[in-house]
Design a binder for these strands. Structure first.
Lengths: 145, 145
DNA sequence: CTACTTGCAAAGAGTTTGCTAGGCC
DNA sequence: GGCCTAGCAAACTCTTTGCAAGTAG
């Protein structure tokens, strides 16, 4: 399950042309394992236990990258101090992949539940997980042609 | 269905004076089976499971060869990082993958059309292709536990 | 047998990291 | 002071290339 999240992180980094570095994976992993919210310094100290050479700037840079990729959430408990936490691995989400510009839009749909129900009755198959990618063209790319 | 594509690949390679090597067939096959989009490294790792001696350079060289032969499509998710996918369509079918016994059942569902319609109205996104994998447990495997 | 291909190692292009030195409430 | 960013050389990721060994036709 936690490796699932890691793969997802790799995939997202890749698809955005970001490089998959050990530091980024380590920081993501630490956040995942820790579960709750962390601030930059706490994350730094935890990561340092495993990779003492990691730098605080990398922590900050990685946090904003992960936030940009929507993998973590920034919590403003107070003005001076930001906390971060892994985004809800809760609701399943799927992807719209634009073949024109490469943008990846995440979506959810209750219809996926209907598909599961149908598959259950048609094939007597109990679905536990789904992976849905829809490819096509986004509004902007369609307008350009 | 999938052997159809393989034969086509052989034929095309031949007709262009390219040699039909196990590596090229393997890589093409992996891409075909995977269905969705892959980048060079993902393809490399998948292929390595079946033929551990394959090299990353072969993956890159084969990808550009297959692109040249128009057997795969290069998706520019961003400037420097490319993804690839098998060309050519056909009746869309999706997969049920049993986590117990590994069986893969193909299915179709009109509901996928509804998802496309919904995605169109919600995100103004025109779907041209879909890749849907549902994982879970088939009847037999459920009865055994 | 000959020309095309592969695997390896290493180069290249471009990004990311770790420092150190600041900047901002 | 406490928290975060900037600038830059060095390190690294991803891709391509050169070459000797291997293989298809």
């Amino acid at each position: 399950m936690s490796t699932e999240g890691l793969k997802e992180a790799r995939r997202l980094l890749r698809s955005q042309g970001k490089r998959v570095t050990p530091q980024r994976l380590l920081l993501f992993e630490v956040m995942q394992e820790h579960g709750g919210h962390l601030d930059a310094d706490e994350l730094y100290l935890l990561a340092k236990k495993r990779e003492p050479r990691i730098s605080l700037s990398t922590v900050y840079r990685t946090l904003s990258l992960l936030k940009e990729l929507d993998l973590i959430e920034e919590l403003h408990f107070d003005e001076e101090h930001h906390h971060y936490e892994i985004k809800g691995r809760g609701a399943e989400h799927y992807h719209l992949i634009c073949l024109g510009c490469g943008e990846i839009i995440e979506f959810e749909s209750p219809l996926t539940d209907h598909i599961k129900a149908q598959v259950k009755s048609d094939h007597d198959f109990e679905v536990t997980g789904a992976h849905i990618d829809l490819k096509g063209y986004c509004k902007r790319c369609r307008q350009r042609s």
